[in-house]
Each structure stands twice: as structure tokens, then as C-alpha cells.
Design a protein around this nucleic acid. Sequence first.
RNA 1: GGUCCCGUGGUGCAGUUUGGAGUGCACGCCGGCCUGUCAAGCCGGAGGUCGCGGGUUCAAAUCCCGUCGGGACCGCCA
Length: 597
Amino acid sequence: MRSLMCGEVGEEHVGSVLTVCGWVARRREHGEHLAFLDLRDHTGIVQCVVDGAADLRSEWVVRVTGTVRLRPEGTINEQLATGAVELGDCRVEVLNTAEPPPFPLDERAADVDEVVRLRHRYVDLRRVEMQRNLRTRARVLGAIRRSMDAQGFVEVETPLLIASTPEGARDFVVPSRQRPGSFYALPQSPQLFKQLCMVGGVDRYYQVARCLRDEDLRADRQFEFTQLDAEMSFADQEDVLDVITAAVDAAVRSVRTGAPGGGGGSALDGVEAGIGEVPRMSWREAVDRFGSDKPDIRFGMELTELTDLFADTGFNAFRAPSVKGIRHAGASGSTSRSLLDDLTETAKRWGAKGLVWMRVEEGEDGGVRLVSPVAKFMSDAELAGVASRLDAQVGDVLYLVADEWAATTHVLGLLRLELGRPPTSEGGLRFLWVVDFPLFESIDAVTGRPVPAHHPFTMPHPDDLAALDGPSEGLLAVRSQAYDLVLNGWELGSGSVRIHRRELQQQVLDLLGIGPEEAADRFGFLLDAFRFGAPPHAGFAFGIDRLVALLLGEDNIREVIAFPKTQSGTDPLTGAPTSVDPAQLAELGLRTLPPRG
RNA sequence: GGUCCCGUGGUGCAGUUUGGAGUGCACGCCGGCCUGUCAAGCCGGAGGUCGCGGGUUCAAAUCCCGUCGGGACCGCCA
């Protein structure tokens, strides 16, 4: 039907009679003697010249046969990859007509209401950016699969209809027709199945797995998302980090060396070949310095420790377990009083008791002077200490928070991002392994039991095993062999070494207050499996959507998903979710309640 | 569960602060002209439930209340 793709027509074809197919991107008609037609397919655009009137409209589907020729002098289009040539003496066959597109398909589409794009996603996907994103995603997936294959992993598919377990995120639930009143759950991840694969001697498992979680959506979260899920036997944390680093490296390289028209975004600036050695940081250090367990290390503005300066302060609000500050360099001129008030309100919404701001001005002695509503409550020594620790320069704004360590770091971490975070497409790719996560996140105030930070099968750090037998105050200090991969402040994925011996597993479950009966009820099949020779194993999973989005400089994963849902979980294209026929419900033994409220 | 922002011909916007006739801009669309354009150009035209509902007012796109849709975020996401 066609002899070449539109974007492939070049000077080497001059003189050949070629046939191309595609959509009418634009037409420029000059009366009944001459018309130009820009024909588009996913490879690009080629100009076709018709010696006569061309009765065509935008987005009509046509087949054009013509003779490739060099464009006349002065009419070469440098903007176009095929701009040196054109298809002349064209014969145009209309394969299909089309209504005018509901929004412009050129670069102006970036400004169009996303709902309009999603409602007509099939048109949106014709755009060069969406084609680039889809094809980059496919190339990343291919590179990851090849890397995992080469490292001896075998792809195993696991079920989509599984048993619901109460841990973690809210499950999507599927009613059973054959057993009315019973339900399947869609997997939040293949976690338990991949561990069963380890018991089953698969040795090295991976899967490009769809995962589903019924939680509120965000720019980096959809109900359904795609993960590279992996698990390996007879392996420790180092082995997993090596394997995953290699897979991500392959993904990054595949984008950098991609085909024309499918290249990456400016996020790849500064990445020479691959991702190189990925730095590591302990969870404690990450939270302490950046106020986040997924620090964006593309920029500084680190949290500075000030607690000891205020140990004996007369400023009661600052007599707190943790006082920290950040410095917004040179921002005083662009930071109005009303903005400071807004930031204070925002900080309170984030959970701060308050936010202290200080403008750095020139002092009488030539040094700096901190100007703040609360400066009068602080001693000269305290103010001097703050200025010194934060390296305050005239024109800066300082922000201080005093609270429990977790609250102080949380609020300042969010404020740091709010004030200093570069755009998604700038600052290069800054990967980071965050290691030594705590085993327990907190102690439940009601039950007195520790709450797991990862999941109950996470192996404690070998050096901290003794503390498991100690008092509950010491439990929060127990580290786990869990690790996260972070890229530019996005959590790409996480993993852990798993507990493979029953005694330790039982001890952890006991600590969590999960008795043998409850354990058997919730994941007895896994504990049973561990009775039959479970090898030591460890694994990881990371989000493909997020990785591809960041590689392309997109700040929203919807841009790298062909048919995503809106933030409220609807699909403007199909109308999902919809009601179903009452007969369908009856067959499933279901009846809906009247709407709440 | 919560905070903030947005909603005006097919698309993007201005108009809303300070109420006064659906007023304006660009693109697109329809028709005409046009033999080297490339976001072609020129001329003409059509196209509106100012998201929806209620209230205040002589008068509401504009002010107030509610609601729907969308987005960003907090909580949530072991």
C-alpha cells in the first residue's frame, strides 16, 4: 500500500516514484493550479505538491503517489527532517475523510484542557510528542527485558485474580459469580507470588507486571501502573542493587541512543552514557538532610541542624526535640510579606506548629542582621548561631521549624521542594539508593505494637537482630534490609531482603501482634511454602511509568500512558466507571446501596 | 477526609478586582480569491445555556451560596 514512511523520504530518493500514506497535517492551497500538502505519519512529515486544486481537509487519511525531487532553491524547510525534498506531481487518493480535529495537533496541544485530549485520545496519540512518549516507553521496556534476560532472569506471569489481603493499599475487588459473596482482589503487586517462585526454584524471577491500588491519584500515581518486578534466590542486598542498577542503566541508554524522532528530553542532559555509579544514602541521613525518604538531590537547600543552639533558649517554641532551618539564597527581594504569610499557613497545613522566617539584612558592623517577628525572643548568641550555621548572606530568607524530629524534617522537606525544586525537565538525572530503612515505622498508640515500615516479610538488619528481643522503645531503631531507588525526588521503586526462616518470621509476626492463627489466615500459604525449603531471597520492583516520564522530562505519568484516567479515576473516553445492568449484579449476588449523604 | 487553583463559540485567552446589551483577540471551521507555500496570504461569513442550580439586584460572565467537572498538593499509597 505504501513504499516508504513519510519521515523517511530523503535526497537519496530523488527521481523515484514513491507512495506514502498518512494524515493531512496541513494544506496550503494556491488556487486551482497549485497546492501543498503536509502528510504526517508517526515517522514525520513530508510535503506533497499537487499541480491543481486539492479538495482535502485536516486529518483526512490519504495515499499519495509522487516523484521525489529536490525543492527549488530558497524553499528548503530547515524545520523539517524531510525539508530538502518534496513529493511532486502527486496523485492523491482519499482513503477516508475526517471531521476537523477537536483541538490543534501541533505544539499548541500542550495548552489544551487535558480532558479534551483524553476524550479524544485516539487523536491526541497522533501528535509527535505522544508518539515519542509511546515509542520511548516501548524501547525502555524492551531494554529492561533484554537486560533482565541477559542477567539470567526468567519472566513468569502471575495471576490477576488473587485473594485479598488486608495489608497495604486498598484493594480493587472483583466479585465471584460462581461463589456469590466471595471476591477476588486485583494484585497491588505480585509480592507473594514471586516469593513462591523462589521456593519453586525459579532462582531469578522477573515480570513486567501490572499492579493495581485503589488509592487517591496524583501526578505520579494511577490506579493501574506497570512495574519491573524482580526477585532472586541466594542473593543479598548488594546483588539486587547491582541487578536493578544494570536494568535501569540499560533503560537510560536505550533512550539516549534512540532512533530519530524518538529521542529523550532535556532531562538527559548531563547523562553521558549510562547512569554510572548510583550514590547511596541511609534513610536516616536522607530524612535528616533533605526531610524526605525520597530526596531530590538535584539541588541543595539542605536542612541544617540547629537543635543544640536552642537547648537553653528563652524562646519556648524552640525548646523542642528538633530545630532545623533552610536557607533560600537571595530570595528576600522576591519574597513578599504576604508570600511569607502564605508559606506559614501552608506549613501549618503540613503539620507544623509554626514557621519562623528571617530576612537576612546588612548589620551595622558590616555583618548580617536577621530580621524576623520572633527575633526579639532570641538571644544575640542564638541569632548569631543561626546565621553562622546556615551561612546566611545578605538578601537570603531563612526558614526555621521546631518540633519533633519527624515533624520538623517533614515540614522543612516539603518547604525545600516548594521553594527550590527545579522543573522536571532540568537538572539531569540524579539517581539515589536510599538504604537502611527502619523496620518499624512507629509504635501504635492504641495497641502498643510496632507498625511495619515495609511489609512483615522484610529481613531486619543483621546488626540489629538483638534489639528485636529488647524493649519496645528500642524497636524503632531497628534497621531493615529494605532499600528504595529514588530519581529526582520521585520514588522509583523499593525492595528488600526477605525473611526466609520460620523462627525469625514468627518472631516478627509476634512483635506485630499477628498470632499464628491470624497469620495462617492472612498469608498461611506463604508460611506453608516456607516449610518446604525456601532459599534466602531478595527482590525489588520499580515503576516503569515514573521512569519513562522522568526520562522524557514529563512531570505527569499520564503523558506516558496511552489511556490514563483523570485524578478522580474516570476515563473521559470510555466513561468508566459506569453502572452495570441489574441482571449482572444479581448474577453476582450483589445489590448497591443508595448513595451516601 | 482536607487545602488551593481553573471552568467564557471547536481550541487557547482577555473581560470578573469596581455589576450596565454576549463585547474583544488569536487559531480553527465554512465560502470566495490566489502558481512556491510551509502555523501560507487576502476578503467575507457562521458559530455562545459565560459548567450547572439557586440567591442578591432595576440589572449578574462579574457579587453570595450550593453543586458538577478538571488540575496541583496534604492525608492516604505496608
